[in-house]
Design a protein around this nucleic acid. Structure first.
Length: 260
DNA sequence: AGTACCACCTGACGGC
DNA sequence: TGCCGTCAGGTGGTAC
């Protein structure tokens, strides 16, 4: 589930593989993921090259001369750079052909991702009304984001309009590391707890990026590899529990993360 | 402002 | 063997 760390790993992957190569052709394999038209993509990007990338929350941006390609990965999106056609991934929806004969695929099994083209990165932030990128915040900025909030902390962390980049999976990890119950009300967090959430947010996101967003490489103290009802808690004798709210699953340890 | 619930979408998985 | 219901969780919409 591509959240901030996954998308940052994709960004570095694109930087390491596909920068500064002339794009000869863009093959649209599935129209549904395109928020723009194949014609506009072709006109503005064919013949150019990706020069630089950025990321805001779960969005990856790639600059090609005068335009920015915007990639969102939905639940199942990923990037694949490959050298010969037989390495083409199963669900590529957009395929960039480079002049050197290599390819970059935007692969998205469930078609919930979206690719768009804009003139300036700020257009993305305005259009989607995104909050600041979660990793760009200092503690003051983080506090400002939470200032007017009264609902459950997990809901606020996952709200892209408040701060961008955190989804269901990483919000569970942040709250586990901060030892806070997911339903704790934001307005009931004391300054110490706010600090704990901020520290956990920063630690978890940077650690996950360092681990290539691969749960197999995460520290043993992490709950993400155990997001399963009845799994052992990494920190106590308790077991992980699942609760549903607003239609999604939250996993937590009832012993470590007490009820508010 | 918050919360609940639905839809989009595909493939994996369990039950029969 | 194969059909069916359920689930995964990002975003966005509606209703209360």
């Amino acid at each position: 589930m591509p959240e901030l760390p996954d998308v940052e790993v994709y960004r570095r992957y694109l930087d390491a593989t596909a920068l500064h190569q002339t794009i000869e052709r863009i093959e649209v394999k599935h129209q549904r993921v395109l928020a723009t038209t194949p014609q506009k993509l072709g006109t503005n990007i064919t013949g150019h090259e990706f020069e630089a990338t950025r990321r805001h929350g779960k969005y990856l941006l790639a600059c090609a001369d005068d335009v920015w390609l915007v990639l969102h990965f939905g639940m199942t999106g990923q990037l694949r750079y490959f050298e010969s056609p037989d390495q083409e991934p199963d669900h590529d929806r957009l395929l960039f052909h480079f002049a050197n004969g290599h390819y970059l695929a935007y692969d998205c099994q469930r078609l919930l991702g979206e690719v768009d083209m804009i003139d300036e990165p700020r257009q993305l932030i305005e259009a989607k009304e995104l909050g600041p990128d979660a990793l760009s915040l200092d503690f003051e900025g983080f506090q400002a984001c939470l200032a007017a909030r009264r609902g459950a902390i997990k809901t606020s962390l996952m709200n892209q309009q408040i701060l961008a980049g955190i989804g269901n999976v990483y919000s569970d990890e942040i709250l586990f590391q901060a030892r806070l119950h997911p339903k704790t009300k934001v307005n009931e967090l004391d300054p110490g707890a706010r600090h704990a959430v901020f520290e956990a947010l920063h630690d978890v996101l940077t650690t996950a990026i360092d681990c290539q967003a691969d749960p197999n490489q995460f520290p043993a103290s992490y709950i993400i590899p155990r997001r399963e009802s009845g799994a052992p808690c990494p920190d106590c004798e308790g077991t992980i529990q699942q609760i549903t709210f607003s239609g999604r699953n939250a996993y937590y340890c009832p012993a470590c993360q007490r009820k508010p």
